[in-house]
Computed example of a mutant assay.
Amino acid sequence: MVDRLSEDERISLQTELEHLRQEHRDLDAAIEALLHLSTTDRLQVQRLKKRKLVLRDRIVFIEDLLTPDIIA
């Protein structure tokens, strides 16, 4: 699939990928901080974890687009 992408598309996807990875790391930190509070808002933690899963799915999708197909 990577051979079908233009250079601009590839750069755009790589930029988005880095942004998503950073947001994923930030959510990790936010969840960890919330869990260490004595009054943890479980609903908020659930929402953050769900957002993290959505980000992970998008990250995997973009990584697949950027990885060349290997014919075995």
Rank of each mutant, 00 (worst) to 15 (best):
H36E: 13
L55G: 00
K50T: 14
E32H: 10
L35R: 14
I31P: 02
L48G: 01
R56Y: 12
L35G: 04
V45W: 05
D41F: 05
D57V: 05
L34V: 01
L48Y: 04
Q46I: 09
D57E: 08
V60K: 13
L34A: 03
V45D: 05
A30G: 07
V45R: 02
L35P: 05
R51E: 00
A29L: 12
K50F: 08
S38T: 11
I31Q: 03
L55M: 04
K52M: 05
R42S: 10
T40N: 10
Q46N: 13
L37M: 15
R56Q: 11
V45N: 04
I59T: 07
I59H: 07
Q46L: 13
E32Q: 14
R42C: 06
R56F: 12
K52T: 01
L37K: 15
R51F: 00
L53I: 02
V60R: 12
V60T: 10
I31R: 02
Q46F: 11
K49W: 00
K52V: 01
E32D: 14
L53N: 06
A29Y: 11
L55E: 02
K50Y: 09
R42T: 10
L34F: 01
L35N: 10
R58S: 11
L55D: 00
K49S: 03
L37W: 05
D41Y: 06
V60Q: 09
T40H: 06
L55P: 00
V54M: 08
K49T: 01
Q46M: 12
A29E: 13
S38H: 14
R56T: 07
L35A: 11
A30K: 15
T40R: 12
Q46G: 08
A33L: 11
V45L: 04
V60C: 05
D41G: 08
E32M: 12
Q46Y: 11
K52L: 02
R47G: 12
R42E: 13
R42P: 06
T39C: 09
K52A: 04
L34H: 03
L37I: 11
L34E: 03
K50H: 13
A33D: 07
L35C: 07
I59G: 06
L53H: 05
R51A: 00
Q44R: 11
T39D: 15
I59A: 08
Q46C: 07
L43Q: 11
E32Y: 06
V45P: 07
R58Q: 15
L37T: 15
A33G: 07
R47C: 09
L48N: 03
R51K: 15
L35E: 09
K49D: 01
A30N: 10
D41L: 06
R47M: 11
A33Y: 03
L43F: 08
L35F: 04
I31W: 03
D57W: 05
K50P: 07
K50R: 15
T40Y: 04
T40L: 07
Q44P: 05
K49M: 01
V54I: 14
L43R: 08
A30D: 12
L43G: 09
L35K: 15
L35Y: 04
E32C: 08
V60W: 10
A29C: 08
D57Q: 11
H36K: 15
T40Q: 14
R42V: 10
R58P: 10
L53A: 09
V60S: 09
V45E: 03
I31G: 04
V60I: 10
R47I: 08
A30M: 13
A30L: 14
T39K: 14
K52N: 03
T39M: 14
R58G: 10
A33K: 15
K49N: 07
